[in-house]
Design a protein around this nucleic acid. Structure first.
Lengths: 222, 222, 222, 222
DNA sequence: TTCTAAACGAGACGGTACGTCCCGTCTTGTG
DNA sequence: CACAAGACGGGACGTACCGTCTCGTTTAGAA
């Protein structure tokens, strides 16, 4: 039904080119851009397949030829948008964590970042067609965060059995909470506040102190 | 237009009973339950006013007589469902945190709890008519969690300036992450696992060690 | 599914008025008129449900609430349009036949008349949902034609066993042939030609001479 | 654009064979058969170019290479199907008429024959691109029927000025009426009934008695 | 008791978007 | 060049819901 997801790379290469008119390669980008623009302008409720088609200069049938429904189209658009977080090596675990925290709060502050999160939640709870979308999140975001700990182990800052998953979930989770409260709760701390970042990183470092080689980090004053 | 919101309590009491047939007192509960059940089963896209009306055995006009639109109805339903988590006093901060973590994972495992979370995300990202809905979450959940820290301060376990907000957000956030991954990531740790709870509580306790009166908790072995 | 056809008169009278908002009584006429106008302007290929809805100032759902599809709607429109042929009593069988022939060719010349015929043919060959439409043709047109012979029998012009069905079919059939050829075959006789009418009536009268009381009609000169 | 209609015979013969791959000669027949079969099964609304292409095992572009649109394809198919009725000489006008009537009712009973009739009606009412299609009907059917009268004149059975057109139209028309009623009107006479054929032929013979040389046919008993 | 006002069920209504289907055009690769 | 395959822009189809409306019915206090 949807060749896009069924085709294996093998068959594509095997027969050189499939018969019939090939798909317009630049069309997908045009549509995905149009979808994101429409979403940005009108929100989810105002996102219309006809609207996307019109903006992209495309027939509605072409949309449904490539994406089975509106949700999938938006997911694909979001996936195309979602550049993975890949905090560069700052030379220390603490520095890497600070960088990740700042990138993450920037990501959540971006409407597109929120859109990704929201679709991900919806997918998770609907339990349908999640397989593919889960990979997006898992493959794009998690490895980048885990790599940070691998570097720390290599550096000799942390023991190999550091509970990276737990810490990564804590990082994503707490920043998600701050971000979700921020838009409307005036009393909530501003995640842009550098002080908050420091506070958080300190909290995480102390939390995983037992696995850190230099145990001095984990205790003492704030 | 919508008596529910326009009427002041005064007039209700003053004239004892307004003329005409009084509102069916149990109808509201029936409708709200039906709304949450429909949402849990079908998601936001599949949530239908006709469906809610049918499930509740109610006319559609009655729905619109009480709630101006679908979003408002769902918000009211969530508010009614969202019973605050109020972990009882176990006698120690560590015990209270363990209890909160267990309650929280049970809440996320419950379809209704998860539904509340989804709606909250949706509301946060749509950025519309959230004002009222925010209060639901903030007023119902946060105080209960913060109370836990107040008790700890009273007991003398923690200093008064313990960053309760930060810890509470960490707790909610990390458990939310585990819950959202669980349905489809087979490798994800089971949040029902008591070991995970212990690990998490340890992580948190160490993280806030500087504010704990008995510093021994914060460092040392896992 | 379609109350319009399922309801028996009984239940309508029995419960006085069905529950819920009653159907707008003048809406049907508005829609049917709009359908015929659109058909007249744009032809079958250009007849659009949205177009009909817009012209009638009606929602598309209302159209589908009353008529299951485009064909049925047009059939209903045509039925509403199709005033039965009821040639008045001219005092003689020959006169009645002449009048019927003239009315019939006028009917076929009218686009609405053709539309009726065409839909009837389509219905006959598709073999679906014909039951109702057949009644339209059979009950509205045939009796009127047969009544003509009943009058002749009463007058004593014809014997009671005159093969009225055969003659009626001949009349409708031959005029249908002339009409169907006329638009594009320039050589075809003009059915408006009074001479043709006379020729035809003569042909029929002679054909049924054996059943006519005054046998002189049936033979002799043209 | 469409070689089939633009090419003159000259160029085809002149260059013996045009360059490139020659047209598959049996392809046209396969497509035309497929078109009529599809039409017979599904009707005009259900007749699909893709469907015809699939059934004929042919690419859609090939269809449009030979026929400019759906209507033209169907017309061509009908023309190919419509083998002229050519009742053989039975030796008498009465015998020829009986044979014609029997052939005609068989033709109408055949789904393909009925399909031709439907298409003809549709074409007549749409009033578009009929010019060519009219020739199909007029040239294929009418001459065959009129030849019957020419033979009668040659035999000396009928005068040369017999209104053959009128009688032919009567024959086609009345049998068409019987055929169109048959599928659903249980009370309608069965056109397979030999008695009906006799009755009809008698009716026609009496009708044209004035032009018959032996006037005895035209009057008397049934 | 009778009257009146409101709540309630049912469901018709105008509107809008959905996802499907088909047309006629186009762009490929293969014979 | 003909042909099969099939992507493409366009547009109508019939379905499903939204939020509004108009009914007839029910339930109570007010007259």
């Amino acid at each position: 039904m949807c060749p896009r997801f069924d085709d294996d790379v093998q068959s594509q290469l095997e027969s050189s080119r499939r018969r019939g008119r090939p798909r317009d390669p630049e069309l997908e980008g045009r549509v995905l851009d149009a979808a994101v623009e429409e979403y940005a302008e009108r929100g989810w409720a105002g996102l219309t397949m006809d609207g996307v088609a019109r903006r992209a200069g495309v027939g509605k049938s072409t949309l449904y030829l490539r994406w089975p429904d509106k949700g999938t189209l938006l997911a694909a658009a979001v996936e195309a948008i979602a550049t993975p977080l890949a905090p560069s090596d700052t030379g220390s675990l603490r520095g890497d964590l600070e960088l990740l925290a700042r990138q993450l709060r920037a990501w959540y502050a971006d409407p597109r970042g929120w859109a990704v999160t929201r679709i991900w939640i919806d997918a998770a709870s609907s339990g349908q067609q999640v397989g593919h979308f889960v990979d997006v999140v898992n493959n794009h975001y998690r490895p980048a965060a885990l790599a940070l700990f691998e570097r720390a182990v290599e550096r000799g800052e942390a023991r190999a059995d550091v509970p990276a998953q737990l810490v990564v979930n804590s990082i994503y989770g707490v920043l998600f909470m701050y971000a979700s409260m921020r838009p409307w709760d005036e009393d909530a701390p501003d995640p842009d506040d550098e002080g908050l970042v420091q506070e958080l990183v300190g909290f995480w470092m102390r939390g995983m102190a037992p696995w850190l080689v230099n145990g001095a980090e984990g205790s003492g004053t704030v």
